[in-house]
């Protein structure tokens, strides 16, 4: 069981039903002004972005190997077995390393609050585990956003790419970007043209820091022995000099 969302920008008509459904679910304010903002913020956890005559969506991509989860010093961010990356505000101390780490700019911050929290999409984990689709999926009139098992979503994406090959740029975004994501995307143009980063490694981002972190036990053990040894030798030398001085 691993949920995923498939967003097909070729089917998106920019009606913003997903935005308002999302705002309603989180009890965030929503009006024409907020609709026009077109960027993620603490009060807008998903947004439609107009790219010329095309529309795309921004939201947390729910990476399979999330950089934010590995970044968080207090484990406030977790990748659930069900797929969504969730956030526990009670733990968060507000270091904002998750925001620096994220390749998609998904975590946002309550910059003007006295006790601020990070805000991000949780892929409606409470709805999905109750067997319901995400709020954005339910609101989408055009099947541009659909959700379900990740394998099923990949199969659906492949089917769409095969059935109308001319309508699509032949690639599923999120299959292996930085280790893969639980939000998959389709587009008629290369993905950087709809604002997705094209420079991500295939490897999960946490691997990059882990290669340094995993050296720590070695540094501690070898370092302690080495420093202890150097201390012993240099001070022993001094003692020997002293003792010999006394003898002669």
């Amino acid at each position: 069981m691993a949920f995923a969302i498939l967003f097909d920008s070729t089917k998106c008509v920019g009606c913003r039903s997903c935005e308002s459904a999302c705002a309603e679910k989180w009890k965030n304010p929503y009006d024409d002004k907020i609709a026009a903002e077109e960027r993620l913020s603490a009060h807008k956890l998903t947004t439609v972005v107009t790219k010329g005559d095309k529309f795309t969506r921004k939201l947390c991509m729910h990476c399979l190997e999330p950089a934010c989860v590995s970044a968080c010093p207090v484990g406030a961010l977790q990748k659930t077995a069900a797929g969504p990356v969730i956030y526990e505000a009670e733990k968060c101390m507000g270091c904002r390393y998750c925001m620096t780490a994220c390749a998609y700019g998904a975590p946002t911050y309550e910059w003007n609050a006295r006790a601020p929290k990070v805000r991000k999409c949780n892929m409606c984990i409470e709805r999905q585990t109750a067997g319901k689709p995400t709020a954005c999926t339910e609101a989408c009139p055009n099947e541009a956003t659909v959700c379900g098992e990740r394998e099923a979503m990949i199969a659906l994406a492949k089917k769409r790419l095969a059935e109308t090959p001319d309508a699509y740029y032949q690639k599923i975004y999120g299959l292996d970007e930085a280790g893969g994501t639980s939000v998959l995307m389709l587009s008629s143009v290369p993905f950087e043209q709809i604002g997705l980063p094209a420079n991500l490694p295939k490897e999960g981002l946490p691997d990059f820091t882990w290669r340094a972190l995993e050296l720590i036990p070695n540094i501690v053990s070898v370092g302690t022995v080495l420093l202890g040894g150097v201390y012993w030798i240099t001070h022993r030398r001094q003692e020997v000099v002293k003792a010999e001085g006394r003898l002669s």
């Binding site: 207090v74 484990g75 968060c92 340094a212």
Partner: peptide, 21 residues
């Protein structure tokens, strides 16, 4: 820190995979 009152959290709430931790 957004929540300086929680500066002690990493001492209690661990994430050994985090460089920040």
């Amino acid at each position: 820190l957004g929540r300086p009152d929680r500066i002690w959290h990493p001492l209690i709430m661990w994430n050994p995979r985090s460089v920040m931790f």
